[in-house]
Simulated scan of single mutants.
Amino acid sequence: MLRWTNLQEIPSGFGPSVVTLGNFDGVHRGHRALLGTVVREAALREAQAVAVTFDPPPLAVLHPDRAPVQIAGLEHRLDLMAGTGVDAVLVLEFTEALAAQTPEEFVRTVFVEALGATGVVLGSDSRFGVRNSGNIDTMRELGVTHDFAVIELHAVGETTAGERNWSSTHLRRLLGDGAVAEAAEILGRPHRVTGEVVHGHHRGRELGFPTANLGSETAGLVPADGVYAGWLERLDLPLGDPERRLPAAISVGTNPTFDDVPERTVEAHVLDRTDLNLYHEHVGVDFVARLRGNVRFDSIEELLTQIGQDVDVSRSLLFG
């Protein structure tokens, strides 16, 4: 998959293409349905399938006080988008100047002149252009002007919890509640945060349960405090390496039993392993199921007993 970060990187005369536009935060099943439609429409038209997205997201520039943490980091998003079969992704830096463009200016400059769009796939609730003044009807009018077809995609998806569309907003609520299993229904996979393994207090190793401690610069929305079963993926190792994806019990929070962890941390203990040295590795932590909330224990013995139980439950959930 081609990746561009500005219009100048797009080859002259690129196209024809079928294009879509969005933040694609999380690249959940609704997003993949949209991108899958782009791929199919591009194949029918013997065109390139292209997605246009933004970094930072528009809300982070226009209303930073209201901007939520991104569900997935940019690199993870791009990897997930590559898995949908799109041929290229254009990641535009969202600036005040870009925000000031009219819908016509944006579509003409990006879709028509840079990408040679012959088709545009757009969700029925999509907005674009200055003050979000463009919508699906605007895109149809521009399609007539610039000779491209517009394919409208209505919201799709429903979770087992009720009549809800697959949406990033609902996904954030679930992760904020620690409902990672329900979030996986929308994502189509376990939720992941990524980061570099750094030195912590080394308390886990002293207790017999060493942990990979992600630094403060994690990418992705960290779910609610608690203990989870999941996986640790060593992203620096090649795909297929048996040591790349490892089962883990994961702790999120400030560790209330001790008083020297003022900030929330994500720590993953690889099950039944004390021989790993993961410092400075780039890893992904996948959350499969929430086991419990955080508890302050009165003694180290009580803590160790509970950790042992958490490890046993994690092993059972991950391996059946």
Rank of each mutant, 00 (worst) to 15 (best):
L44Q: 15
R45Q: 11
V52A: 01
G73F: 08
R45N: 03
N23R: 12
A60N: 05
L62P: 00
G73L: 08
P57V: 06
V38S: 01
A43S: 15
P57C: 05
R66I: 00
H31W: 00
R45I: 03
A67F: 03
R40Q: 15
A43N: 15
H31D: 02
L21C: 11
L34W: 05
A51Q: 06
H28D: 14
G30V: 01
G36Q: 10
T53A: 07
L74E: 09
E46Y: 14
V52W: 03
D55I: 11
A33L: 14
A60F: 08
A67M: 04
R45H: 11
D55C: 10
A51H: 04
L62F: 11
L44K: 15
R32S: 05
Q70M: 08
R32V: 05
H31S: 11
Q70I: 03
A42T: 03
F54A: 08
T37M: 14
V39R: 06
A42S: 14
H28V: 10
P64M: 13
Q48M: 14
V52S: 02
R40Y: 14
R45W: 11
R66N: 03
D55P: 03
R66C: 04
R66H: 08
V52H: 01
I71M: 07
V38I: 09
R45E: 02
P56H: 05
